[in-house]
Every structure is written in structure tokens, then in C-alpha cells.
Design a protein around this nucleic acid. Sequence first.
RNA 1: GCGCUUAUAGCUCAGACGGUUAGAGCACCACACUGAUAAUGUGGGGGUCGGAGGUUCAAGUCCUCCUAAGCGCACCA
Length: 1088
Amino acid sequence: MPPMAYPKVTSAHNAGNVPASPRFPEIETQVLDYWKKDGTFQASIDNRDAGRDGENEFVFYDGPPFANGLPHYGHLLTGYVKDIVPRYQTMRGKRVERRFGWDTHGLPAELEAMRQLGLKTTDEIAEMGIDKFNAASRASVLKYTGEWRDYVTRQARWVDFDNDYKTLNPDYMESVIWAFKTLHDKGLVYEGFRVLPYCWQDETPLSNHELRMDDDVYKERQDPAVTVGYALDATGEDEVLDGAHILIWTTTPWTLPSNLAVMVGSDIDYVVVEGPVPGTDATAKYVLAEARLAAYQKELFPEAEEATVLGRYKGSELLGRTYQPPFSYYAGHANAFRVVAADDAVTTTDGTGVVHTAGAFGEVDKEITDRENIEAVMPVGKDGRFTAPVVDYAGVQVFDANLQIIDHLKAVTRGTAGGSVTAGTILLRRESYNHSYPHCWRCRQPLIYKGVSSWFVEVTKIKDRMLELNQQIRWVPEHIQDGQFGKWLENARDWSITRNRFWGSPVPVWKSDDPAYPRLDVYGSFAELERDFGTLPKDAEGNPDLHRPYVDDLVRPNPDDPTGKSMMRRVSDVLDVWFDSGSMSFAQNHVPFENEEWFQHHFPGDFIVEYIGQTRGWFYTLHILATALFDRPAFSSCISHGIVLGSDGQKMSKSLRNYPDVNEVFDRDGADAMRWFLMSSPILRGGNLVVTEQGIRDSVRQVMIPLWNSWYFFQLYANAADLETTGSTTSKDPLDRYVLAKLRDYVAEMTSAMDDYYVAEACEATQRFIDVLTNWYIRRSRERFWNEDKAAFDTLYTVLETVTRLVAPLLPLTTEEIWRGLTGGRSVHLADYPVVGDLPADGDLVARMDAVRAVCSSTSALRKARKLRNRLPLGGLTVVGADIAGFEEIVADEVNVKSVRLLAADSDEAGTYGIEQRLAVNARAAGPRLGKDVQKAIKGAKSGDWSVDESGQVVAGGLALVEGEYTLETVAGAATDDIAVSMLGTSSGAGGFIVLDTVVTPDLAAEGLARDLVRAVQQARKDSGLNVEDRITLSVTGSETVRQAATTHAELIARETLATTYDVVDSLDGNPVDLGDGEKAQIAVAKA
RNA sequence: GCGCUUAUAGCUCAGACGGUUAGAGCACCACACUGAUAAUGUGGGGGUCGGAGGUUCAAGUCCUCCUAAGCGCACCA
């Protein structure tokens, strides 16, 4: 063992043993173990001072996932961003606390609990006991927290699980009820009525989300559709309309007993026609949209071609007319049974152009009846069965009641008794109607729309302010601001925040149970509750707990009731989970009960990230509450990323197995590979991403292996050289200075991209730099490392150390291994992010070196075109008009020529190489002046119809061009057998060209063969398993030409192959190997 | 039905302000190079820039309409 060879690889597992072909997943788990033992994460926070008033803190909000399932790619994707940004900010010197959060309340947890407990209805829940039920809900929602922790840890995401927040914690819930009370005090909450899709089987309203849960939620269903005529009241003002029957069409006959109004479109044309009353000899007048007349030909004018129109009316002319409702249950209902306008809701594509509305059984219905001051009625119980006052069908499930209702309508139409159907009501048509209808995703029963009482946040009142505050938020991608989010805000409606359920934060409202002595109290803290009730809500163990049923136990006499009989009882609702998560920005820190001072300095938070759909979810609810409570935005920057798709471009689906298994990817390619794959994609700019195994492997191949190989190369030679280095940026070597200057540019790119949250751009910049590092700097500098050039080691050390810090957020595990191996330090994540000032700038050098690369590239192309293999040395290369002064040797070596000459573009000699000038018309400049003629000039320039006279006047296509309207470019002209000419492609070499001497002299040919021999011997060495430093004995033979070359260049061959004895012999056994020029050789290699 | 986003090579994407031979990376093929490299270099095949109109001297780029996809909203009486 050499004494303390450099680098000091500190990880015990690989001291002096850096693998050439690393198994990244193994390295990753070792790094993860190290972090765990070392407490690196905590140190990365503790190391950074919060500063005065926490001014040095970067506040990151971790959106709480609902963890009743395992994490998938979407969570991992978000998780990577949630890790990268805080890591970067930490390295930039900020203190970044990262508390994990859990969304714990709500219907999904309850449904899981119901499933486990075998419960079907809310009555069964109440029967079993809310305490037991909620305990089961709590357990179900925390079931997967362990798995989540494993996944998140494995993906190398640093987040504090021990100090997490949960929406079910008493502190969190206290902040939530504080928010409710504050909104109430500001007049921003009210109690109202909300129409929701409702499952009568499971006795629960469904959220919009649940309606989209499955593709087969909307299923074809056949319902009876009826067309019913209501008798308009006579006004005596219009004998055509008086007594006419206004025709409505509905697919939910069961809503007819609750009819409250009929809706027409103001601009729709309606007609009154006379037609038969079905099942009788009588006739009646009917009102319907003219556009729908033809659809009712069979019923209205079975004999005639056309109906006899008795009168025509615009919808607006019908408004206000009253009619006899089809059922008498709600006779006398205030403001009801009128024709009202609903211009957006009424169409003439189906039915009659008149829509019956039942208030509480449709969203639009509710909106219209509210507008018309018609109070909604609800004769349907939570089990979907009729209740009072609909006595005829009481206890009948609404879908079952359809047929009875139709029978009764039919009977009354024919003049016989039909329950409570109003006499004079006409059932004109009964049909079956197929339509797409929502079903419960759990029990598969058809849903009904049903009004339920709810509390609302009056978002419409603060909408304008929300739009203003949105302008203060930085969105990635930018179009979200005024696009998806801005548009959503513009159309914001009041937010229903309560659910008639069990497992959630309570609505902190207590009401008097006697309407004779009304009183309403809202509570916003434990202390207020204790003050009024003399005790806190406490769970079975006596701990304060705001959950039901404990909070429901707080009851006290109504102070406003002198009789002392009525009691203050809590309303039974709980808050919607979105109210919980929208409260996260303050509730996670128990604001305002604690941390109020800190909060003032750290609100809005600096950064959040979630998928784009959260513009109507978490982003939205955070924004509502921040605006309403604090008049600020909740966050100042937000990335909303796209959707992760399966390998077939479809949504990821467990059953289709169209995506690589997460754990398999971790085990085979590693978490960093997945991180790179996701982060370098357009998904953070709002695009979608198709996940494929190939894509993940490509990131290993294109980024991680080259980076690792650079490190492997460095440590291999550094250990062999037994050098000490601490890095330096002072090397005078041009390649060193070049790579350092490039590194400086790269630092600037990274800082700018990361500051702007353009993670994919950072990945791109990294790939470009790694290419410069491996395929130019290291490749060109190998000899200096073999020669133990300290400046080269110092430079490469500096570059690798800097690059690992730059890339640390993007590849945290891999860079940790390399950086610690390099420096022996504790962790790259405790280091500071590089700054440009650490590195020397040299724009001129960078430009020249880029020109060098262009020269080499063009020369290779010439060799290729002339079939001149690279090992064959050529006499000379002339570089014209490209500034590569000082790099002639690099070029000579790289392209294997004996000499490199530089010529000025305007030198006489340059003119001898068959170089031509080309005219390019600058259309942007010439176009506006010449108009149409510019096309002639362009044509002329292209076809060669142009000239320059002595005064420098340029004429193209017969048109004189002025300065700035054209550029004269130099192009390669005809080549000869002896020279090849090529233009330089890059901007740094624009206008320049190279001239390659292609004459192969016998000397050059011999040297080429000698080099072929060297190569053949090297291959033979490798094939026989010799080490790099092993000495050999070598014999070669071949044709006269080969033997000649082998003898002439004996010294070169012996030196390059480390041959201690070297003989050119007349004959040898063994297979011949191919050399260039069609020659073959036989060689014998043995270890000396 | 409405809105947002997207549509460019087999794949993933760039292509300010309109400017005349539409680029990159990956993949593929050939050749070359190779004692850090599962690498690398050079060349090549591959495009009616989703379609149709229009504006303009000039359109991948601007306008109109259409088509397709993703997302969202609404509707589903």
C-alpha cells in the first residue's frame, strides 16, 4: 500500500477500490446508510443559521398527500422536485426546514373504514358509535405511512418525518377552526344549500373527484322520459295562452312531485298548437318550442302535415305566467309555479324547449330557483326514499316511484283518479330514454342529484383580490398564471366547505336547538370552548380532541333563552378535507396560537410544487384562505408539473402494467437515474412524460456513467501518482484554463437555471459540460496525467469537486459518493454551492479552443472523405482565418499531422487554395427597401448572377445592394489530389477554412504502419490480460514493407508498448492481424 | 359546447423580433478511433414543420377555420 495515496477515499467500503463499472443501486444504499448514521440531513439544516427574524430561511411547503395507498410515479416526481429545490437552497446558504405532511381526514378514509367494518349506511355508523368508526378511519389513513417513508427515503428525498404535521393533530385542527371563525367574523362564510351527486345506497354525497374516479362511472342507462303538460292559469289577457298546457320533458319523473317552476329560453320561439289529449276524445292547447314541434308530430298532429299554430311567443313573453303544478303537495309555495328564464340551461336539442325544475335536484335548478326566491323543497330522505309531504309515494325509492308516478299521470290525463296529481295535468308522451348517467363507483347504483345543506366560503366576494394577489406569484410554467389558474379564479364560485360526515375537523358552530330563542356561536380555539363549556372536548384517554363525537358532547344552555330550556348544540357537519389542506400554510405551525411572530416574516412561503391539477385543488384552497385571512398570496413561487404517463402513452394503470415497477427501477438503475430521467424531461414545464425503462437507463448511460468514469480516471491515476492535491485554479496550461473557464460558464448557467426553477435546463447544461470534460479535456489531457503533471491533477480535482457540488441536488447519491471520495469531507450537501467568482474567466481562450475543436472536427471529416485513416500521419494542415494561435500542437496531435500552419484570411497564399466568395443577401435588411425585388437579388446571389465592382459596389440579379444588405462569405473551392479543403462550421470559425495536405509520402506511410503495429500490440497485450505497466518481449513480422516500417520506427514501437526486447523477424507463427494500406502483420507478445 | 396547453425527423424536444438550405440529443447504418470509458469521433439515411385558406417581397413563426391529443370547465332536464 502506498503511503496515503491521493485521493483519500474515505468511505470504508471502497477505500482504494473505486469500481470501474459501478453498480449504482449498491452505491446508493451505502450512501443512504451513511446519511442515516451520520445525521447528515439534520446537519444540513443545523449548519445554516436562520438569521435575524429568520431572514435566512427558505420556506418550503410540503403539500400533504393522502396516504391510503402506495406512492406512484406522480408522487415520486413531485418528491424529487421537493428535494432538489431545498437541497439547492441549502447549498446556497439558506436554512430550509422540511416537514412532511399528511392529509388524514375525509371521505376516502371513511369509505375504507366502512369497507373494513362492513358498514353500508350512516345509520349503521351512528349505531356502531362514531368513536369506534373514527378510530377505524384514523387507522386506515395511517396504514401506509411506513411504506411512504420507505419510498421517500429510498428516492433520497430529505424530509423530516419525525417532526411531521398531520391534519388530525389537535394543534392543526385548532388552527383550522380558528380560520373558520376568522372567516365568519369577516363575514366570509354563510350557510346555504348545495346540490351534489348523491348515492342513496351509501348515503353520502360524492365529490366531483369521485365522479371521475372510474371511466365507467358514467354508464348508459335507460330511464323513462315523460312529456307532461301543466295547465297555464288564465289571466284573461291572452285567450290563446289561457288554459294552454305548457309541455315539459324530463328523464326523472320522480322529481315531478317537487316541481317548483318551469324554465324557458328568452330568445327561443314558442308556439301554441292544438292537439288531442291522449286516451280521450278531447283536445287541448299545448305550448312548446317551435323547433321541437316536428318531434311531437305523432302526438300533436297525427293526421296533418303541419300543426295549426294558434300563436307564437318569444320565451321572454311567457315569463311570469303561472300554472297548476303537476302535484299539489306544495300548493301555495311562495313565488313558485311560474315560467322563469334560464337562457343558458334551456336548449331545443331535446324535449320540448321547456324545462321543469325541482329546485333541490339539480345544480342549475337550484341556481334558478334561488334567483327567483323560490325556497327549495326536499321530500326525499337520505336513503333516497320519499318522505312527507309526498304521501302517495312515502317510503318508495325514487327510481321505483317513477312508474307509479307515470301511472298516476296517465290516469289523470284520462280523467280518472291518480293520487295527488293535479287535475288537468296531461301526460302527452312516455318513452324510454338512453343516456349516459353517473353511477356510484362503489355500489354501482345510479346516483341522484340532491340538495344538502352546507357552509360556504364566499369566494365571489374576494375574487378580485385573489386575482390581484395571483399576479404576485411566480408560476412555472408561466402560462398557468393567467391560464389555467387565472381562468379558474375568474370563474370561481363560492366554496362549499362542509360535509355531513364523521371523520374531519368539526364545523365549530353551535346553534340553539329552539328556533324560538335563536343563537349561533362560532368558536376558534380550545380556550374559547373551555371558557363557555367549562371543559375541553376530550377523547377516551382524556386528551383534548376536536374530533367527533367528543366535540359533539359539548352542550350548554342557551344564554339567550330565559326559560333555560333550549340548549346550544354543535351543528353536526365536519369540514371538507380541502379546508384542512388549504389551511396548511399556517396550521402546520399552529398559527396564530404559536409562531405568530415567525409567521409574519415567513408568509407567503417561498416555494411549492404539485401537479397541474392542483390549480383547482391545493393551490386554489391555499390561495383562498391566504387571501381571505391574511390578504397575501400563500406562496411566491409554484411549479405545476405535468402528468406521468405509462410507456404506451396512456394513463398509468396497474391492471395494464404499462409502466416499470418503481422498486425494480430502484434496484436495477437506482434512484438517481430515475431522478435524472424525470427532472431532465419537459414535465416540469407543464408537458406530460412517458415513462419507459429505456429512458431511465439512458440517463444512466448518458450522464451518470460519464461522470463516474471521470472520477474513476482521476482516482486511478492520482492513486498511482501518489500525489497530494487540494485543487487549484492557477494552472497556466491552456487546456486547464479552458476547462476552468468552461466550468465558470457552467456555474453561471446552473445558478441561473436553478434560481428560476428551470430544472431541465440545469440538466441540459450539465450534460453539455460533462461532454466537454470527458470528450475533450480528459481525452486531450491523458498524457499529462500519465506523466504526473501536478497542474493537471489540481485542475481535474477542482473541476470534479466543483461539478459534484453543482450537480449535488440533481444526483444527490452519486455525487455524494464521488465528492466524499475526492475530498474526504463529510457531505457534499453540507458544502456551499459554487459561485462564478471561484473560477477564472477567459472568454477569448474559450472562443479559440472552440475554434480548435471545429478545426479538428472538420479535419476528421476530410480524412473520412479521402479515406485516410487517423493513424496515418499527414504532412500538414493549414488553418485559414481561424484564431487558434497557441494550440497548433493540440490540433497536430488530435488530427495526426506533422505540422499546423496558421494563415490570415486575407493573405495572398490563402487566395491560392481555390477559395471562392459567396454573396448572401441579408433579406431582413434589404427586404423592406427592395420589396418584391428582394427575391430577384436573392435569386441572383444564389445562381451566381452577381458581381462586385472596383468601388466595392455589389450588384445581385441586376440590383445594387447597399452596405449591410449583404455579406460576402468565403467558401471552399475545388480541391486537388494533393490537398483537401473544408470550411469551418462553427460561429467561432466562421469564414475560416482548413487545407489538408493529403500527399502520403513513403515515410508517412511507414509511420502509419508503425502506429498500426503499436495498436495491434496493445490489443494483443489487452487480450492476454497484461496490466498497463507490465513489460513485454515483442517480435513482429510481415511483408517487406511492414518489416521496413517496423524497423525504422523500432524505438516508437518499443516505447509505446513497453517492450524490453523488440525484434523484427523473418517469420512467426500465429494469425496475421490487419494493418492499414492492406498490409498484414504477425506479432508475438510475452510478458518480460 | 367553452377554455387552456400541445402538434416540427423513428423518439424527446429547440427553433427572440416573420428573412429564404428547419436544428439538437437519442435511436439506426457505415467507417474511424480506443490501455479511464458499457465510451468517443466522422459521415449517412431520415421532415409536404397536423390540415386548409389568408396576410406579406418573404410564413415553422402572424391571422382565420378545421383536425387530433392532454388537461380543465360546463352539460347530461
